[in-house]
């Protein structure tokens, strides 16, 4: 069986959405909405946006779930939510809060303008450009990650996702891809 390397399987960085850390959550959402990745003829939306600092150092990534977290009610009305949670010692139910839709909308807008660095997740693992498939699978399983940055000569050159990994495994098993 041919073992491909991360460099061969990855999505090159110039095809993958990335933004500076000071860009807003709204910008990150726009990046996820607008980015279309065409891999092996299949189009998919990016699952995450990489975040860099102004020196082009990789700082983290923003996934959909990080964005979701950013919009949790306690992140809107932190003090009120914690206060109610403390008083009644029950899990906070946003339905119980009396929030006007106008206020909610305004809050979402305000939250969306916060820097993406406030919600981004850390980079917990990377793979090297020359790492083979099994190493990639290991890192993904071990860290429970669905995407890893690929590093070559101390620089981020791309990302590899579970999609690329499973596609490669499918190819190795002779399963034809539906393109």
């Amino acid at each position: 069986m041919e073992l491909k390397t991360a460099g061969e399987l990855m999505i090159p960085l110039d095809k993958y959405p990335h933004i500076p850390y000071w860009f807003s959550i709204r910008h990150a959402i726009a990046e996820l909405t607008h980015s279309q990745l065409v891999i092996d003829g299949q189009i998919s939306l990016a699952r995450a946006v990489l975040v860099f600092d102004d020196e082009y150092n990789l700082m983290g990534l923003v996934r959909r779930r990080d964005i979701m977290k950013g919009f949790e009610p306690e992140n809107f009305f932190g003090d009120q939510a914690h206060y109610s949670q403390h008083l009644f010692e029950v899990k906070h139910d946003p339905d119980l809060l009396e929030i006007s839709s106008e206020r909610l909308h305004k809050s979402i807008e305000e939250k969306a303008e916060q820097a993406v660095s406030s919600i981004m997740a850390p980079i917990e693992a990377t793979v090297d450009y020359n790492d083979h498939l099994f190493k990639i699978v290991y890192e993904m399983n071990h860290h429970q990650l669905s995407m890893l940055p690929v590093i070559k000569d101390d620089a981020v050159v791309g990302v590899i996702r579970t999609v690329e990994v499973t596609s490669q495994i499918a190819k190795n098993l002779g399963i034809k891809l539906n393109t």
Partner: peptide
Amino acid sequence: FVSVVANAKAKQ
């Protein structure tokens, strides 16, 4: 986070 991937810059 940076320390996790020290010097991991975007390729220029």
